[in-house]
Simulated scan of single mutants.
Amino acid sequence: MSKRSQAAQRLRPLWDELRAGDPQAVHEARKLTRRAQAELRVAEAGGKTERAWRDLRRAAAPLRDHDVAGGHLRDALVELSVPEETLAYFDRIWADRRAALLAGTTWPGRPPAFDLSRGWKGRARRLVQKDGRKLRREGEAALASGDPEQWHAWRKRLKRYRYTLALLEEVPPALTGTLEALGRLQDAEVVLGLLHADPDLLRYERARLIAREEVARQAAREQVRELFPALAAQLSEPDRQAQEQAGA
């Protein structure tokens, strides 16, 4: 039987706040676009609906990235015990940057909605099995590489897998923990990119901020490496179950 999209249902009450640029609404909407991406793979909703969610994700992304980077930078400044005037300066320039981003944001005209069509559970199970096999290989390649883009691409596909799996069962801690570590890794990459791209941004604290994010980046990668054996086992589980059923 068909099923209503949870992402679409949760987005609707946020819509006015989202279009006004509320940070929490932006955060929630960005997460919901990832959930919708997984749902759409089993929904057979059509290209128009897929494009609407893609456009929403692209609209929310710059604001959310700005908010996350700003949170990390401000926490770092507090941790480094900078003067109050430095914090006030940062708050002012970061608010101005956000206002400019929001002014340039074009939101979709209305919240997109769709249903998951009949047979969605079977499609979701097949995707979980197929994705797990591929993600295990991609994870091994990412861990052997120093390329941030490779780690980020793996993270995005792993997030999609997480929401596909969540349609069927509880998401295991090995997966959520790995995604949290990968999220901190990506946040560090974004902050470092900002600091390296703009030498005038917080110039007097720049060296200490860069050092802090480099430490965070390395720690996040090490955490992913520690979690990977358990994650690999989880990603292999659908294949193992299928083999057991075939041999029964």
Rank of each mutant, 00 (worst) to 15 (best):
V78I: 14
R35H: 11
V42C: 05
L231W: 10
A197C: 05
L87C: 01
Q223H: 03
I210F: 03
G193D: 04
E244V: 07
D55F: 06
R30C: 10
A100N: 11
Q37R: 14
R240I: 08
V224S: 08
Q223W: 01
E214A: 02
L73W: 05
G132E: 01
W120F: 09
V190M: 04
E244H: 13
G177Y: 04
V68Q: 14
T178A: 15
R160I: 11
A242Y: 13
E138R: 12
E39L: 04
R137M: 07
R157C: 00
G104V: 09
T164L: 15
R184K: 10
R133P: 00
A174D: 07
D55K: 15
R58V: 10
F228D: 04
G46R: 12
T105I: 09
A188T: 06
D16K: 10
E50L: 08
V191S: 01
R92S: 13
L185M: 12
L235I: 07
Q37K: 14
R155F: 02
A69P: 10
Q9Y: 04
L18V: 03
V42M: 01
R34Q: 13
R41A: 11
R240V: 13
Y89C: 06
R217H: 06
E138H: 11
W94V: 02
A219S: 05
E28V: 11
S236D: 15
S2N: 05
R137F: 10
